[in-house]
Design a protein around this nucleic acid. Structure first.
Length: 271
DNA sequence: CTTTGCACCTGTTGGC
DNA sequence: TGCCAACAGGTGCAAA
């Protein structure tokens, strides 16, 4: 479900609402997620104050005085702040009860996400060790991207989604960025010129920033930390628009499969 | 080292 | 209306 703009929207929305709150209790209703929710989570989190909410890649981090809670939302996860009186829904796997009668609820029908306790600092956690650069940082730039693509003979679109190179770009925004850059998603990464790498880097940053402005993309069930949908789906240029006319040239948008994921592109605007 | 295919899981959708 | 296959925002791992 969430790519970088969606996770960042949740982080920004939750921060003013939960920083400073203390954890009163943690209830685990379903521990079998991508990784097992540690049974020690309630004990170690109990009584601790939330000092901050941070993001790295598509991971979200609730920071405590000692350690923190690491959350990934997978394809269908959400983390919402609800009144303590709100009824427990199917797939509400973990409840974090706060000291002002609200709860953070981790909800995830497909259970591809995870929520766990880490003693380590955020940056040194094993799950975050092999991640690439943040796309909105200066570390993601034309020069480095060009160099990184020199050994890559595969298509550019799956590479854009490879988190060891650059994080946060999922199936929606990879298609969107390639459209903005005018690059065919099947183009071998190694064949991109310096100029095209520069265009693509700019396009990734632009599309992520636009989506952030719109509060993310809600295709079906994405909601932010307060249960609100995003609105970027209204501005999607190619994703989910197979057979529909390109917003620039009118040519029918096409869909194809790359790495078991659907790619959308305009055969005229993208070469 | 890079690339590819699959597995993980449930819910929704579209065709017949 | 019902059934069933295909598909869905991610990631890690094995194998080629």
């Amino acid at each position: 479900m969430p790519e970088l703009p969606e996770v960042e929207t949740i982080v920004r929305g939750l921060t003013p609402l939960i920083v400073g709150r203390t954890v009163c209790a943690v209830h685990i209703h379903q521990a079998r997620l991508r990784a097992l929710v540690p049974p020690t989570l309630p004990g170690v989190a109990m009584g601790q104050q939330i000092l901050g909410v941070r993001r790295r890649s598509k991971y979200l981090w609730l920071e405590f005085t000692r350690g923190g809670i690491l959350v990934h939302l997978g394809m269908s996860g959400s983390l919402r702040l609800t009144p303590g009186t709100a009824p427990l829904l199917k797939h509400d796997h973990v409840e974090i009860v706060l000291d002002n009668n609200t709860q953070l609820r981790y909800h995830d029908p497909r259970r591809f996400g995870l929520i766990l306790w880490a003693e380590d600092s955020f940056e040194t956690h094993p799950l975050l060790q092999d991640l690439g650069v943040e796309p909105l940082s200066d570390d993601f730039n034309a020069l480095r991207f060009y160099h990184a693509t020199r050994t890559r003979r595969g298509a550019i679109k799956p590479l854009l989604m490879n988190a060891r190179l650059v994080v946060g770009v999922g199936n929606i925004y990879a298609s969107e960025a390639l459209f903005l850059a005018g690059i065919d998603p099947r183009c071998a990464a190694i064949n991109l010129t310096r100029a095209r790498c520069a265009r693509l880097v700019d396009a990734v940053k632009r599309v992520l920033e636009e989506a952030l402005q719109a509060g993310g993309t809600t295709l079906r069930d994405y909601r932010d930390g307060q249960g609100r949908p995003g609105y970027f789906q209204r501005q999607l240029r190619v994703y989910g628009r197979a057979q529909k006319p390109c917003r620039v040239c009118g040519t029918a948008i096409r869909a194809l499969c790359q790495g078991q994921r659907t790619t959308f592109y305009c055969p005229r605007c993208q070469r």
